[in-house]
Amino acid sequence: MGLEDNFYGEVLLDHNLHPVHRHDLPCATCRTDGVNPSCGDDISLSLEIHDGIIENGAFTGVGCAVSQASADIMLELIIGKTTDEARHLAHLFDKMIRSEITESELEELEEAGALQNVSKMPARVKCAKLGWRTLESLLEENG
């Protein structure tokens, strides 16, 4: 693979082509839509929260590889965590996008760290953040 072939990186390509959490979630306790009006991308995020713990989550919708992979990686990361931990990770993701993140914080983001380089492209920041932004508003609405 040449340099330009690594443009998106394998983690991102894999999550885009083979998303684990892209499906309906019949037992969801809450659901909300996130839209990226500049490109028309939209996702629907569903979570199953019991006693403050995100027991399951999924997304559906359409979008570019960056938005889809980012949402899939996000769900991988937050399932099994408390809503407070999920908020903390969303905050860290935001810091990463703004290039203000420390090395140890980056480790907490695990695979989401794969979005670090793509996020340096101003036009793609919104794509990378779509899932996380939707998560934040979902948690906001549902305590």
């Binding site: 443009f7 998106y8 490109c39 359409v62 979008g63 570019c64 960056v66 492209m121 036009a123 793609r124």
Partner: peptide, 12 residues
């Protein structure tokens, strides 16, 4: 391939 990805890969 989403159009955004088409444009980004072409830009590279």
């Amino acid at each position: 391939v989403h159009p955004h990805d088409i444009a980004a890969l072409m830009d590279s």
